[in-house]
Simulated scan of single mutants.
Amino acid sequence: MNARAWSDGAWTTPPSAVDQDGADLLVTAVEGSDAWRHTAYGFVHDDAHALLAPLDDPGAVEVTFDAGYDQQFDQAGLMIRADGETWVKTGVEFSDGVPQLGAVVTLGRSDWSVAPVPEWAGRRVTVRASRSGDAVTVRARVDDEPFRLVRVCPFPAEVAASAGPYCCAPTRAGLVVRFRRWATGPADTALH
């Protein structure tokens, strides 16, 4: 994987503040920011703060961040986006009193899958998404533990997409996420 400079990306929606602390990027989310389309909630939100740059096809992207947040629906991770109706966001979202590892896949309408990871609270998380053919394979780990498979999801083949770190704060002001690394490289060679 090759490290990307924070300056390589462009924001889909600017956050309320962006600062650097050494090599880390500190991002303050706007209250009410989110990414979702229709399903179950009946609304469309397309104002998550995603710092995106073109992603090779096939290709992979990794984002490392601190899961140091604890308010309902606070979230951070990475996003792959082709357009406003075609995107994947994946990472750690605080929901129902616990950090949840999950993904939202949006192909016109959003879906959401999560699994509780209370032991990840306050720790360094790396999320990796690998795009190849008509699929994205999502893996994640905490600290230096092995990657675990999160999801294999559909994503249109041969459609230009961008990827990079994202965060949002649907229910509160003051969320600050520390992003530690952004890297891209070749797609994973196997699902297992």
Rank of each mutant, 00 (worst) to 15 (best):
134 D>M: 08
107 L>A: 10
148 R>S: 15
152 V>W: 10
124 R>C: 11
157 A>T: 13
111 D>C: 10
129 A>C: 06
90 T>G: 15
115 A>N: 03
150 V>M: 08
105 V>H: 04
126 T>S: 01
129 A>S: 09
117 V>D: 04
94 F>R: 03
148 R>D: 14
87 W>C: 02
72 Q>Y: 00
81 R>V: 11
66 D>M: 09
93 E>Y: 03
150 V>H: 05
109 R>T: 12
115 A>R: 13
85 E>Y: 04
73 F>C: 04
82 A>K: 08
157 A>V: 12
99 P>A: 12
108 G>I: 13
108 G>L: 06
131 R>W: 06
107 L>F: 05
112 W>T: 02
149 L>F: 09
74 D>V: 14
146 P>N: 12
97 G>M: 02
90 T>C: 14
91 G>C: 15
85 E>G: 05
127 V>W: 04
126 T>F: 00
97 G>H: 02
144 D>V: 15
80 I>R: 01
85 E>W: 05
147 F>N: 09
107 L>N: 02
132 S>Q: 08
102 G>D: 07
100 Q>G: 05
93 E>P: 06
84 G>I: 05
134 D>I: 00
126 T>M: 01
109 R>P: 07
83 D>M: 02
116 P>Y: 03
140 A>H: 07
68 G>E: 04
86 T>E: 08
111 D>M: 05
137 T>S: 11
137 T>R: 09
75 Q>A: 09
71 Q>P: 01
119 E>V: 01
151 R>N: 14
154 P>G: 13
81 R>D: 10
83 D>Y: 13
86 T>I: 02
70 D>E: 13
71 Q>K: 13
140 A>F: 10
160 A>F: 03
64 T>L: 14
155 F>H: 09
154 P>C: 10
86 T>P: 06
114 V>F: 09
76 A>Y: 08
91 G>H: 01
153 C>M: 06
78 L>R: 02
68 G>N: 12
116 P>S: 06
103 A>K: 01
101 L>G: 06
102 G>Y: 12
111 D>H: 11
77 G>T: 13
149 L>P: 07
102 G>E: 04
149 L>S: 05
98 V>W: 13
157 A>H: 15
100 Q>F: 11
137 T>F: 02
158 E>N: 10
96 D>Y: 11
65 F>R: 08
105 V>P: 02
148 R>M: 12
87 W>I: 03
153 C>L: 15
78 L>G: 09
88 V>N: 00
132 S>A: 01
84 G>P: 00
81 R>C: 14
107 L>C: 06
148 R>H: 12
128 R>W: 09
